[in-house]
């Protein structure tokens, strides 16, 4: 039948040549290829010991920053919660009492501030919405796996930046 597109190709299986019938040249060829791969550097990252480096703009676990004097920047304005498309952020606002000026930067602060890491889609909109530059997504941390769902609701104990970043591991009580 005449082909309409004129692009039809008739493929015919050619009988094998003598070298092909001997199989051996092709086998040696194949063996040399696999041997080259044997000595190649393996691209595998051995995960728990080695970790792939995140990019600079990677959006990972949140942190509530402090200012230069170690006071919490967050004023519990709720803009991050409004901006959040996954509705992962909840907070309760409170008024700063006398004598707490070294703890909170402004008169209003977040008594509780919770992010549900199972709801969060790590879009970074909270970071953009924040007028006080308080909430940030770190580019070097992710939420580690846990056994219980409520362990994924991160409160202030795990979100607020520790006072001394150097020994941050002691400040944040991860429940591994």
């Amino acid at each position: 039948m005449e082909s309409l597109s004129n692009r039809k190709k008739v493929l015919e299986q050619k009988p094998m040549t003598v070298t092909e019938k001997m199989y051996l040249p092709a086998i040696f060829n194949g063996l040399s290829i696999t041997m080259r791969h044997f000595f190649k550097k393996k691209p595998t990252i051995l995960y728990p010991e080695q970790k792939r480096e995140f990019g600079r703009e990677f959006r990972g676990l949140h942190v509530l920053r402090r200012d230069e004097q170690g006071r919490e920047r967050c004023t519990a304005c709720g803009l991050c919660a409004v901006a959040c498309p996954a509705e992962a952020i909840t907070m309760v606002a409170g008024e700063r009492k006398k004598g707490e000026e070294h703890l909170y930067r402004e008169e209003k602060y977040a008594v509780t501030y919770e992010i549900n890491m199972l709801r969060c889609i790590f879009c970074g909109l909270c970071e953009e919405a924040c007028p006080k530059e308080a909430v940030f997504l770190q580019n070097d941390k992710t939420a580690p796996p846990r056994f219980e769902r409520d362990e994924f609701i991160y409160g202030k104990d795990r979100l607020v930046e520790p006072l001394e970043r150097a020994d941050s591991k002691e400040n944040i009580k991860y429940r591994y």
């Binding site: 696999t34 041997m35 791969h37 044997f38 190649k40 393996k42 595998t44 051995l46």
Partner: peptide
């Protein structure tokens, strides 16, 4: 098998 297939 792993080494020949570029994995450990």
């Amino acid at each position: 098998a792993g080494f020949l297939q570029d994995r450990p």
